[in-house]
Simulated scan of single mutants.
Amino acid sequence: MLPGCLVCLLGGCLLRHWASGSDLNCTPQEYPHEGRCCHRCAPGLKVRSDCTASRNTECEQCEERHFQSSWTKERHCTPHRSCDHNAGLDTRSPGDTKHNAECQCQQGMYCSSRDCQTCLNITACRPGEGVAWKADNFSDTVCVPCEHGTFSNISSSSEPCRPWTRAWPWPQPRPLSSADLCYGHYCSLSRGAHSLLPVSERSPAAQTEAGPGAAGSRGAGTAPGASRGGVRGA
């Protein structure tokens, strides 16, 4: 058994050693090493050798295609991420010694997560739906059903619902009913035989622009679409 004075001496040494380590108050830009605070290396650099009693930390530049984005005590930089073209990715930013490379999805696709590891196809809204929000690099298309008075007869990832075209059946104009359907410049009307005739031929404005003698300014006895069956049974 050790003499009491020797035990006390060893205990005091251990206590002083523990206290010296706990007394280190390194700043966020420093790190503890062998009882002293060493300076961390700045972003874009890595540690070449730790500090000693006679010199400070030695740092060196990150190697090509590697980066370090924060103050570090590490001896190795992180490799840039690779944007795999076969996975639908393109390089958005090549990165540098302080920043990682950034990827983006190819046209017609969007990132499935914020780190853009994989891509998904952009949704095309179906006929009867319109685009409320176009897709971007991190989110898909938002589709909504077309409300009464609007329509969509195509599949699209960019087109919103369009308002119904106002029909002007010859010879007397009338507003559309809920059963009337218009697509672009053509209307299929619920009443009468005015079916699938160009709206431009039925618009009073178009008739006025056509001038005297045009189809829209003919007398009431001759309908401009009569020869094509446009007013049968009216």
Rank of each mutant, 00 (worst) to 15 (best):
173 P>S: 12
1 M>A: 09
86 N>S: 09
125 C>I: 13
152 S>T: 13
217 S>I: 00
157 S>G: 13
120 L>V: 10
30 E>L: 01
26 C>V: 09
118 T>C: 03
90 D>T: 07
229 G>Y: 09
197 L>F: 03
16 R>H: 00
48 R>S: 15
85 H>G: 12
200 S>C: 03
146 C>N: 08
168 W>R: 01
186 Y>F: 13
154 I>D: 10
47 V>P: 00
32 P>S: 05
98 K>L: 14
41 C>W: 03
220 A>R: 10
234 A>I: 07
11 G>Q: 08
27 T>H: 05
67 F>T: 05
130 G>F: 10
84 D>A: 11
175 P>M: 02
135 A>E: 08
44 G>Q: 07
144 V>M: 11
145 P>D: 11
159 E>G: 02
140 D>V: 04
226 A>Q: 15
195 S>K: 06
117 Q>R: 07
139 S>Y: 14
109 M>D: 02
59 C>A: 11
204 P>D: 10
60 E>R: 06
170 W>N: 13
181 L>F: 01
118 T>V: 09
202 R>N: 08
219 G>A: 04
111 C>I: 07
28 P>Y: 11
197 L>Y: 02
203 S>W: 03
195 S>H: 07
60 E>F: 07
151 F>C: 10
101 A>E: 03
221 G>T: 01
198 P>D: 12
108 G>F: 10
132 A>C: 00
109 M>N: 04
223 A>Q: 03
8 C>G: 08
7 V>D: 02
116 C>Q: 07
228 R>L: 13
105 C>S: 04
15 L>K: 00
163 P>A: 06
104 Q>Y: 06
127 P>G: 14
173 P>H: 08
29 Q>M: 08
180 D>Q: 00
215 A>G: 11
96 D>W: 05
118 T>Q: 12
72 T>H: 07
132 A>I: 06
208 T>W: 11
142 V>L: 10
24 L>T: 01
136 D>K: 03
77 C>H: 05
28 P>I: 09
171 P>R: 08
234 A>D: 10
139 S>P: 02
91 T>A: 02
13 C>I: 13
26 C>F: 02
6 L>N: 00
81 R>S: 15
11 G>K: 05
225 G>Y: 04
88 G>M: 03
146 C>R: 04
213 G>C: 06
67 F>L: 03
46 K>T: 09
175 P>L: 11
222 T>Q: 12
210 A>H: 02
215 A>D: 14
